[in-house]
Nucleic acid binder design. Structure first.
Length: 487
RNA sequence: GCUCCCGUAGUGUAGUGGCCAAUCAUGUUGGCCUUUCGAGUCAACGACCCGGGUUCAAAUCCCGGCGGGAGCACCA
């Protein structure tokens, strides 16, 4: 038996969080429920989970459903499923659409403090005055007027775009992205999937995030760099109320090459039949990863290795596959799949026995044994192997025997492995009664061919098609259907 | 235009003034292996954005360039 040296994987350890106290860390994952989770979400979900586990803290899954236009009702169910698959432990779930009265109350307090105002300017004018560092006519109106207009907003007296609640920051702030920002808007045209038409005043992300990050007792927030300016805005709300800010950290942007992630386009594609569903293996969703045989712990290892630096990074499929390969290789049983199959007759013998290990590193798992008969015995090998063998004159059929090729015909010449010393090529093969097999590749193409008989218990498992790659078996009989994992 | 963030091999990462002619992983190339184009194993390739300054000493500190990214939404 092969003694496999224990592979010590040096996992890059995440840096410690400043001020983290064991048992008191509270962190969150805050997705918008526009669809299931994709690769891009997994980084923030996993990093937060890693830290929560390190410090025995609390992980809050906060569904940010404050924009009814971008909600897929199924996402409320799919997101927790995806998190579970990822191995992320959720201790508490918060749905923002259930907290509107709470947000309204905080808004009122801000108005009373003179730190917010209700603006009824046309959108463009308000934006322009901000650009010029000038207050709009409504900014300095008396508090009583503000409160009255706010009540009218809540009562539904204003139509969409006719009034907003604006949080005051600093109109003279050199960074235009930080000057006064909208805290609430009016939405009437799209009913909310959860609250229907009960509320028409919706908090904006910067408002609800700040309020919730405080009210839920968050101690540390890790999120993408795209929120850097949002943090600066949210800081004003914290300061107005004298709340202590969590420690905010922003990691760099990730670009994921060749990945289809955009929820809206995928959603449309599913409707039109372009994609088979959210788990279509061409997609970058968590579901598609699982369907292809990518393991959650490989994704986790990848993100831990990337760390939480502010540098923008490029996602590497190669690295993810390497992490995944380490994890699936031992468990993946070996089978033969012959793509572009070509028949090869083997004369000179009446009966052949094959004996191939289920896994070369684990002989104790047994062997795939076949008895081949026929006159001549026929097998299939892949086109490339056959044409090369024709040139060289000899071929080793793996775990079966050696064949000499003379003018296109094969003749059995024994089973002596020493033939390999002469650089004879080893080819894999399938018997003539092999099953039809199709492998769906992540790029949407298919590889068709024949596979050796695969036992029923392998269904749903990741196996290795030797010299082809790892695949996840969707079906093993009567036809074999598989999804390509990686090589 | 304004503001912010960032800049170590193809990719990711370690490195917080000397132990760095720079770590690990991935990748590529080649070798080994009586049976996979996988695994294992051995080796090679490959980087501190540029220019000044501080210092006995700089990838590491300072300044200036250059380059990349993000934000300036009644999206999240």
């Amino acid at each position: 038996m092969t003694v496999k040296k224990e592979k010590v994987e040096k996992v890059h350890r995440l840096v410690d969080l400043p001020g983290a106290v064991d048992g008191e860390v509270v962190m969150r994952f805050a997705p918008g429920p526009s669809g299931p989770l994709h690769l891009g979400h997994t980084r923030v979900a996993i990093l937060n989970d890693e830290y929560v586990k390190r410090y025995n803290g609390k992980f809050i899954n906060r569904i940010e459903d404050t924009n009814p236009d971008k909600i897929d009702p199924d996402a409320y169910k799919m997101i927790p499923e995806d998190l579970e698959w990822l191995g992320v432990k959720v201790h508490e779930t918060v749905v923002q659409s259930e907290r509107f009265p709470f947000y309204y109350d905080i808004a009122k307090q801000l108005l009373e403090m003179g730190k917010a105002y209700v603006c009824t300017c046309p959108v463009e004018e308000w934006r322009k005055s901000k650009e010029e560092c000038k207050p709009c006519p409504h900014r300095e109106e008396p508090i009583e007027v503000q409160l009255e207009k706010w009540d009218r907003m809540l009562a539904g007296d204003f139509e969409e775009e006719k009034a907003v609640l604006v949080v005051k920051t600093d109109l003279k702030h050199p960074n235009p992205a930080v000057r006064d920002f909208v805290g609430f808007r009016i939405v009437k045209s799209t009913p909310h999937p959860r609250t229907g038409t009960r509320y028409c005043v919706y908090p904006m992300m910067n408002f609800s995030v700040a309020v919730d990050d405080h009210s839920l007792g968050l101690t540390h927030v890790i999120r993408g760099k795209d929120h850097l300016n949002n943090t600066l805005r949210q800081e004003y709300i914290f300061n107005y109320f004298g709340w202590k800010m969590p420690w905010y950290h922003h990691y760099g942007l990730v670009s994921i090459p060749d990945a289809i992630l955009k929820t809206s386009t995928v959603g449309k594609g599913i409707k039109t039949g372009e994609y088979t569903g959210w788990d279509d293996v061409r997609l970058g969703t968590v579901r598609a990863m699982g369907k292809r045989g990518i393991r959650a712990d490989a994704i986790r290892a990848f993100w831990i290795d990337c760390g939480i630096k502010e540098v923008d990074i490029e996602f590497s499929w190669d690295s993810l596959y390497a992490y995944n390969r380490d994890r699936i290789d031992t468990d993946a049983d070996r089978y033969f799949f012959v793509w572009n199959p070509q028949p090869l007759d083997v004369c000179g013998v009446d009966e052949l026995h094959s004996k191939a290990p289920v896994h070369p590193d684990h002989p104790e798992r047994g062997f795939r044994e076949l008895k081949l008969t026929g006159r001549p015995i026929m097998v299939f090998v892949t086109e490339d192997d056959l044409s090369q063998a024709m040139e060289r004159g000899k071929l080793r059929l793996k775990d079966l025997g050696n064949v000499e090729l003379v003018s296109g015909k094969g003749r059995y010449i024994g089973n002596d492995l020493s033939i390999l010393k002469d650089k004879v090529k080893i080819a894999h093969w399938v018997p003539d009664n092999a099953r039809e097999c199709v492998v769906h590749m992540p790029d949407g193409t298919k590889r068709e061919g024949k596979a050796e008989p695969i036992p029923e218990f392998e269904k749903g498992k990741v196996v290795q098609f030797e010299r082809f790659g790892f695949v996840k078996l969707e079906q093993v009989s009567p036809k074999v259907v598989a999804y390509y994992t990686h090589n």
